[in-house]
Deep mutational scan, measured.
Amino acid sequence: HNLTITQGKLFFHYNPKLCLSEIHKMEEVSGTKGRQERNDIALKTNGDQASCENELLKFSYIRTSFDKILLRWEPYWPPDFRDLLGFMLFYKEAPYQNVTEFDGQDACGSNSWTVVDIDPPLRSNDPKSQNHPGWLMRGLKPWTQYAIFVKTLVTFSDERRTYGAKSDIIYVQTDATNPSVPLDPISVSNSSSQIILKWKPPSDPNGNITHYLVFWERQAEDSELFELDYCLKGLKLPSRTWSPPFESEDSQKHNQSEYEDSAGECCSCPKTDSQILKELEESSFRKTFEDYLHNVVFVPRKTSSGTGAEDPRPSRKRRSLGDVGNVTVAVPTVAAFPNTSSTSVPTSPEEHRPFEKVVNKESLVISGLRHFTGYRIELQACNQDTPEERCSVAAYVSARTMPEAKADDIVGPVTHEIFENNVVHLMWQEPKEPNGLIVLYEVSYRRYGDEELHLCVSRKHFALERGCRLRGLSPGNYSVRIRATSLAGNGSWTEPTYFYVTDYLDVPSNIA
């Protein structure tokens, strides 16, 4: 807008934040220059609390790290170098490059900038070799853009010569660093050979998330399962459950009422301010606690030095998902009996873990797994792929695949051998790939016309006998059925096997 004052003059007093240069501009645009008398524009009460600059400061050096910015700028000295009290560095987070010096300023003089007072450097006698002032900004957020400017702080001049310097606002972004852990990993099994893994992005990506790394490792069953005799009275049979499938998407929606109208769909109840505040506090606490764990609990591995020492970490090797089922080394339970199943799973520490690289999504279907087997899954978020990966501390989750139908069934015939004193040795093959492992066998036998009897055969007993022995049988026709019990439950009964026990007292003698 054009402003013209045809008559009258300007009068400025007691404006401590208004620089004289701005008042002189007002004289020019209003056409009143030359009308004012000496005392109409006070030299001592206008701009006496402001830094009124008329020179431009330029930054000469900028260096960044993930949490620091090192700045240096060209030296500046007023005509009387004693008038320079120091520099004021202003900075704040700036997602967009549209910041002005006066953003967030209120009537009390406060604003949204963080201000650092910096002492002037030592003055050199040689004007050509003056030290460049600077400042190291610490405690910054990774991968965050900051708006920065600097200006001088000078003393009051009796001659009211307006001098000083100020830089333009520059924008500097800190470097990326390792992201925080992925949030809320959930693993479920939808079949006997697959596990579905879902997660949420890290709360602090500290860069642009480029991919996720998912490692999985087959877990050995508890050692007590191999040692305890679950045929003993009072000892509860062990059981394991597989990871249940995901709930429906509708039930997972946030901010939804727990109660549904019987007449149909209901609208979600909005969260109160107290609920939102509580969630923010919980989120802040979780982030602080995660940072504490990362800094205190997890110790970084030592990389190899120039002395030739090897990095103890196993090298990563990509495998196809079809090879995942046989990740671990199978060892027989008892070496003397080769027909026992290889369900003991000690994992070799030198073995390469299978892994998958996930790009542009937060889910993965891990296939080719062994049925009813526990897996430990390790999830890392990465925001750099080359020249070397920059990934987060791992988040861990466990899951067990679903049982395989008929995996616990005894394959092959049940054979028998009759000894003296009416002892019958029953023999059968253990299931080759049971659900988890076989903890015991149930032997059901009966003599024709009598009630059915049951015998429990422990895992250890089966390994020693290759089956079991029935003792003290009365003469007669017998039928026997056997079924295995694994961590997933009972298998199917075998087809009945028949044998006849004679009275050993009636056996004919070869003595003449």
Rank of each mutant, 00 (worst) to 15 (best):
Glu221Arg: 06
Lys271Ile: 10
Thr401His: 00
Val457Glu: 02
Thr241Ala: 12
Glu389Gly: 05
Val296Tyr: 07
Pro244Ser: 13
Glu351Ile: 14
Thr494Lys: 02
Arg313His: 01
Glu389Ala: 06
Ala309Tyr: 05
His371Met: 01
Val457Ala: 03
Ile276Met: 07
Pro354Val: 06
His352Gln: 12
Asp250Trp: 08
Glu282Tyr: 10
Ser479Gly: 03
Ser486Gly: 11
Val359Ser: 09
His352Cys: 11
Ile276Thr: 10
Gly449Asp: 11
Val457Arg: 06
Asp229Thr: 09
His416Ala: 05
Leu232Ile: 13
Gln256Cys: 10
Gln219Asp: 09
Leu235Arg: 09
Asn339Ser: 11
Ser509Gln: 10
Tyr292Lys: 11
Val439Gln: 08
Tyr396Gln: 06
Asp250Phe: 12
Arg301Phe: 02
Glu404Ile: 04
Gly325Ala: 15
Gly368Leu: 05
Tyr448Thr: 15
Val423Lys: 03
Asp385Arg: 07
Cys391Leu: 01
Ser239Pro: 10
Cys231Arg: 02
Ile438Thr: 11
Glu388Thr: 11
Pro387Arg: 07
Gly325Gln: 15
Cys391His: 03
Gly489Val: 09
Ile410Ala: 10
Asp261Arg: 15
Ser474Met: 07
Tyr500His: 13
Val507Tyr: 05
Tyr478Ile: 01
Glu420Pro: 13
Ala395Phe: 08
Cys231Gln: 02
His211Trp: 11
Val358Phe: 04
Arg318Phe: 14
Glu452Lys: 07
Asn360Leu: 06
Phe289Cys: 03
His352Leu: 07
Pro244Trp: 09
Thr333Ser: 05
Asn422Ile: 02
Gly207Asp: 03
Arg353Ala: 04
Ala309Glu: 14
Ser344Gln: 09
Thr497Val: 09
Val507Leu: 02
Lys406Val: 14
Thr502Arg: 10
Ile276Arg: 05
Cys391Arg: 01
Phe355Leu: 10
Asn360Gly: 07
Ser486Glu: 00
Val297Lys: 13
Val299Arg: 15
Pro346Lys: 10
His461Glu: 05
Ser392Tyr: 02
Pro244Lys: 09
Tyr500Phe: 03
Cys468Arg: 02
Asn255Tyr: 07
Ala463Cys: 11
Glu282Ile: 13
Asp408Trp: 00
Thr373Gln: 15
Thr340Pro: 13
Glu279Asp: 12
Val296Glu: 08
Ser283Met: 15
Ser348Trp: 08
Ser305Tyr: 07
Leu379Gln: 01
Pro312Ser: 12
Glu430Ser: 14
Phe419Thr: 15
Leu369Tyr: 01
Cys267Gln: 10
Ala263Ser: 12
Phe298Trp: 04
Gly476Ser: 01
Thr373Ser: 10
Arg481Lys: 14
Tyr441Leu: 00
Gln384Ile: 06
Cys269Phe: 12
Thr340Asp: 13
Phe355Gln: 07
Leu369Asp: 01
Ser268Lys: 12
Gln256Tyr: 13
Arg481Thr: 07
Thr303Pro: 14
Arg471Ser: 05
Gln384Lys: 02
Arg376Pro: 01
Thr340Tyr: 12
Arg483Thr: 01
Pro205Ser: 08
Asn477Trp: 04
Gly308Lys: 02
Arg390Val: 10
Ser474Asp: 07
Ala463Pro: 04
Pro413Gln: 15
Ala263Phe: 04
Ser367Gly: 09
Glu247Leu: 11
Ser492Lys: 01
Leu277Asp: 06
Gly368Trp: 13
Lys233Ile: 08
Asp506Ala: 10
Ser315Arg: 09
Lys317His: 14
Glu389Ile: 06
Val480Pro: 01
Ser251Gln: 14
Ile366Glu: 00
Met427Trp: 06
Asp250His: 08
Asp250Ala: 08
Ala484Val: 05
Lys357Arg: 08
Lys302Trp: 15
Lys432Met: 05
Val358Pro: 06
Asp409Pro: 00
Ser509Cys: 03
Cys267Tyr: 12
Ala407Gln: 15
Phe298Asn: 13
Pro508Arg: 15
Val507Arg: 13
Pro244Cys: 09
Phe298Gln: 15
Glu465Phe: 10
Glu378Lys: 08
Gly322Tyr: 06
Ser474Ile: 11
Thr303Leu: 04
Gly436Trp: 02
Asn206Gln: 03
Val297His: 13
Asp222Ser: 10
Ser348Arg: 11
Ser344Arg: 14
Ala309Pro: 08
His211Tyr: 13
Ser344Phe: 06
Glu247Val: 12
Phe462Thr: 03
Pro496Ile: 06
Ala395Gln: 14
Val480Gln: 02
Cys269His: 06
Glu310Gly: 09
Val327Trp: 15
Lys460Leu: 07
Val345Asn: 07
Phe215Ser: 10
Val414Trp: 01
Lys236Ile: 04
Glu282Lys: 04
Thr401Val: 04
Gly322Asn: 04
Gly472Asp: 12
Gly476Ile: 00
Tyr441Met: 01
Pro434Ser: 10
Val324Arg: 11
Val424Ile: 04
Tyr292Asn: 08
His454Pro: 04
Leu505Ala: 10
Asn435Arg: 01
Arg218Ala: 06
Gly322Ile: 12
Glu356Phe: 09
